Amino acid sequence: STAGKIFRAMYDYMAADADEVSFKDGDAIINVQAIDEGWMYGTVQRTGRTGMLPANYVEAI
Rank of each mutant, 00 (worst) to 15 (best):
N56K: 12
T50A: 11
A15S: 04
N56F: 02
F7A: 08
M52T: 05
D19P: 01
S22F: 02
Y11C: 12
Q45K: 12
A9S: 01
M40Q: 03
E20C: 08
G38Y: 14
K24W: 05
I6T: 15
E37C: 09
Y13C: 02
Q33E: 13
E59Y: 00
T47G: 02
A60S: 08
E59G: 08
K5P: 12
E20K: 11
Q33C: 07
A34W: 11
D19R: 13
M14S: 14
Q33V: 11
A34R: 15
F7L: 06
I6W: 06
N56A: 14
D25Q: 15
N31Q: 09
T50R: 12
G38N: 15
D27E: 07
T43C: 08
I6K: 10
L53F: 09
F23R: 01
D36Y: 07
A34L: 11
A9C: 08
D36L: 07
M14R: 12
V21C: 03
Y13G: 05
Y41W: 13
F23Q: 04
A28Q: 13
M10K: 13
D12P: 08
S22E: 02
A60N: 06
T43G: 05
D36V: 06
R49L: 14
A28P: 07
M40W: 09
I61T: 13
L53E: 04
N56E: 10
Q45W: 08
M10F: 00
T50P: 09
D25E: 15
G26D: 05
A15T: 01
G42V: 01
I29R: 01
M14E: 15
A18S: 14
G26E: 01
G42C: 03
A3P: 09
Q45R: 11
L53S: 02
D19N: 10
Q33T: 14
A34P: 12
G4C: 07
I35F: 09
N56S: 12
V44A: 04
A15M: 02
I29W: 00
F7Y: 15
A16R: 15
G42I: 02
V32S: 07
F23A: 04
K24I: 08
A55K: 01
S22A: 05
D19W: 06
L53R: 01
F23E: 03
I6F: 11
T43A: 00
T50W: 06
L53M: 11
Y11M: 13
D36S: 14
Y13I: 00
Y13E: 01
M14A: 14
I30G: 06
A3G: 13
G51V: 03
V32K: 05
T43S: 04
Q33W: 07
Y11I: 05
I6V: 14
Y13A: 01
D36T: 13
S22W: 01
A18R: 11
M14G: 05
T50C: 07
D19Y: 09
S1T: 07
N56I: 03
V44P: 05
D17M: 01
N31Y: 02
G38V: 13
F7P: 01
A55R: 11
I29V: 04
K24S: 10
V58S: 05
G51S: 00
G42S: 00
S22V: 02
G26A: 05
K24A: 10
M10C: 04
M14C: 14
F23M: 08
A28G: 04
I29Q: 00
N31A: 07
V21R: 02
T47Q: 03
M40F: 11
M52V: 09
F7E: 04
A15K: 00
A3F: 12
D27P: 01
D25H: 14
Y13W: 03
S22P: 04
M10R: 13
R46M: 00
A60C: 14
F23H: 02
R46E: 05
N31H: 00
K5I: 12
G26V: 02
S1G: 13
Y57G: 05
F23W: 08
G48A: 08
G4T: 08
N31G: 11
W39L: 08
A3R: 11
G4E: 10
S1E: 12
I29M: 03
Q33I: 15
Q45S: 09
E59C: 07
K24Y: 10
V44E: 05
A16K: 15
K24T: 07
G42L: 00
M10A: 03
E20N: 04
A55V: 08
Y41P: 05
I61N: 09
G4D: 08
D19S: 14
W39M: 08
S1M: 11
A3Q: 15
E37W: 06
